[in-house]
Design a protein around this nucleic acid. Structure first.
Ligand code: FES
Ligand code: FES
Lengths: 162, 162
DNA sequence: CAAATTAAGGATATATATTGTCCTTAATTA
DNA sequence: TAATTAAGGACAATATATATCCTTAATTTG
């Protein structure tokens, strides 16, 4: 696990961008202000999302970010991996190779039994995140968050994109 | 995720301890030598396993560590959590609270929808590790590792416990 | 065309977490 | 009694995460 804050930021930013009117962009400055986080650092996470083709950008005045795909075509795993990277959370340093009894080399040896299970656990983690689409999150939010707040959010975004 | 190496070390040490003759202990020095890792730092991981009652200790000459339970009563999750801690890998800093539109307080609000899914993914990870017992690992190792190496390991351990 | 604005990204600084070492203490066994 | 061991505190070194600043090139708006 490499980036802590930026993952949370990226996920929330994608959720906000999904509420953007057609053809509009929202700039890093607004995304940072909305979430109360440092603009320059958030920019790194947005760059990662851009490179992963999860968001797309426009330069110049009224530029910024918007989703590159429909929310039901974006999984949480995509977003998390774009920012954190695709490497496993468990890193095997092959300490079994240090075994003093290992005087011969075993050419066709499998990966360590312990590492394999740790990686399977990682896969289970990934599978859950892949199952969740951004659109699923949006539905939950609509159910959980008071309508008054949802309206205010819309207004806030509108006032920065017109 | 806090400790990286020590988790791998702790898992391997438990596997080694499971091959210990009845009534015998293996000291940190041997465990460190067997895995080619720093003795003093490994000691921290072993202390965590001891506090979690996964291993038990004996002081004085011929002292050291042994498993506190049968290998089929120890899950990988226990070992990992003893060393890494039980906290979730995803840390929600509640950035939603920084929303400038949030002018009122929502007393009975649920945890953030995004955090909930991230925590569910964490649960899936835990579930896989809880399903795997140390005895399962030992069986896999017996199948995968050449008998010659297994024998040498046994001898190596015996020569340090007599 | 000109000016303003924006993302991209390199360089660098700071804070925090991880990794590793050293040493003391108390317990226990041979 | 002497040797040995785990426990754990203190500390140093290193790596990583976090944050800021600045330059560049592209693009849109007017
Ligand atoms: S050698 Fe890395 S987990 Fe076994
Ligand atoms: S506020 Fe932390 S994940 Fe939503």
């Amino acid at each position: 696990m490499i980036l802590k804050g930026p993952v949370e930021w990226g996920l929330h930013c994608c959720a906000v961008l999904s509420g953007l009117p057609e053809g509009q962009y929202l700039a890093t400055r607004e995304l940072a202000e909305f979430h109360g986080i440092p603009k320059e650092y958030l920019s790194k996470a947005m760059q990662s999302l851009s490179q992963a083709s999860i968001v797309e950008t426009s330069l110049g005045p009224r530029g910024g970010y918007r989703l590159a795909k429909a929310p039901d075509q974006i999984t949480l795993l995509e977003i998390v991996e774009a920012i954190e990277g695709k490497h496993s959370t468990f890193i095997c340093t092959e300490i079994r190779k240090n075994n003093p009894c290992l005087t011969f080399t075993n050419p066709d040896s499998k990966p360590c039994a312990i590492a394999r299970v740790m990686w399977e656990a990682d896969e289970a983690w990934r599978a859950r995140l892949q199952r969740e689409r951004l659109s699923d999150i949006l539905e939950t939010v609509k159910r959980d968050v008071p309508g008054e707040l949802l309206r205010k959010n819309q207004e806030w975004i509108s006032s920065r994109t017109q």
